[in-house]
Design a protein around this nucleic acid. Structure first.
Lengths: 233, 233
DNA sequence: GGCAGAATTTGCGCTGGCGCAAACTCGGGG
DNA sequence: CCCCGAGTTTGCGCCAGCGCAAATTCTGCC
């Protein structure tokens, strides 16, 4: 394996508080891998052996129900840490991680976590802050599913995707990885049919443009209105 | 304030890995308070000043939407740590904590967290394990809300309550704090009307008995069947 | 012991969104 | 360049569960 270059991580918030030497040291214990689109980085319920940082690409975190239905827990963007079972004392991964596009990933063996967290406190702290954010986001999602209509939830989901992974184009903010109606349905607790109908309606009104596995938000503001308003359908 | 007795916490899993001396030391930096039923230990969005351990009672963790609707994030039982904003680098509480019955609570100033976590690694590790469990539970709840019918969700919620806080009586497993139909609705994303109808139906069939702010599970097994089965209404 | 208010039950009508099915469209591999 | 299959759109019928409303039953307080 080639030595990993510090430039891989020096720009990422997760590592920014570390000195160059520390960054180099942290990298020395990591291994890097590529994952082709639609391959799994790890699978739900399997023994957690490593934790990861996404260097390039997008990852879909998916939980599968006992009867095989899938729910998308979240998307991971570049620079984010994921699969942090070790930091939370878990022995298995509670979900699967699947490359949404070709990805580059750094991995550390779980056994290294205690030492790394001790040696680089800022790294540990950032990780736990991330966990805290995800817990809150997940609870927010429970709230949305409890109190909002499907239309509001899908609007919220698109806005979140646009913010987190949106790429500005001349026609609007494009979600920069392939995402199907089915994916959006699995993020919002509805069916691909309902998502399709909503996107069609919004496209008619010029709020978005969408194609096969592709959504571009043209008018975020009107989407915000939809996400807040129980009526105004 | 009277000195806190080590017997308060020595039986709790959170502290069991600590030596008696360590337990005493940990207690020295804590303060204990009582909260009457329906009073708040902390409020959503306010500055997080402390983290807590519940010594006696039951606590409801509630999130309120911008338009005032409430969702119950979880119930805290005796011995559990809660309000751990500090450990996750948050500056405000993401939810409110309200005493479901009269409660006794230990509190530590947030500023103490780093030192305590360093000094008592087992304490920190247990806390993070708890956070990990809650994250997973919350994601499970998202899954349930995405894929299950209301009847299944309410059955799941009752089973969870019975397991976590159930008290065995001669007539079944009684949830040992006052819980209204409205509360159950806020846990499962439905309305008190629907909960009431379900409980009535289950009572007719002898699966539960229920009264005002009270539910006793008589036949957990049939409740499990209901929680798993999309039909068999 | 009685009363006011809270919690619960139950009826009824309506509808958002699901399930099913069929048609259509697009993009990539052969 | 054409074909195949995945992804998407759209129509249609139905029903779980919500919203509203009213009646009923507790229960804690005075």
């Amino acid at each position: 394996m080639a030595a990993l270059d510090r430039s891989l991580i020096s720009r990422l918030p997760l590592f920014r508080e570390l000195t160059p030497d520390e960054q180099t040291e942290l990298l020395r214990s990591a291994r890097s891998s590529r994952y082709a689109k639609d391959t799994a980085i790890f699978e739900q319920e399997t023994d957690a052996h490593s934790f990861f940082v996404l260097i390039a690409g997008h990852i879909r975190v998916v939980r599968t129900t006992p009867d095989g239905q899938q729910v998308i827990a979240r998307y991971i963007s570049e620079g984010e840490i994921f699969g942090v079972a070790a930091a939370l004392g878990r022995t298995t991964y509670p979900a699967s991680a699947v490359a949404a596009v070709d990805c580059v990933v750094l991995a550390w063996a779980n056994a290294l976590w205690p030492e790394l967290a001790r040696r680089f406190p800022a790294f540990g702290a950032t990780t736990y802050r991330t966990v805290g954010n995800r817990l809150q986001e997940t609870q927010t999602r429970v709230m949305e599913m409890s109190t909002e209509q499907v239309e509001q939830r899908v609007a919220h989901a698109l806005l979140r995707l646009a913010n987190q992974t949106g790429r500005k184009t001349d026609s609007g903010i494009e979600i920069d990885f392939p995402i199907s109606r089915q994916d959006i349905a699995e993020m919002t607790g509805t069916t691909l049919h309902t998502v399709s109908r909503l996107l069609s309606k919004w496209e008619e009104r010029g709020i978005i443009v969408s194609g096969r596995q592709k959504v571009t938000v043209k008018d975020p503001h009107r989407l915000v209105v939809l996400s807040e308003n129980r009526d105004k359908g």
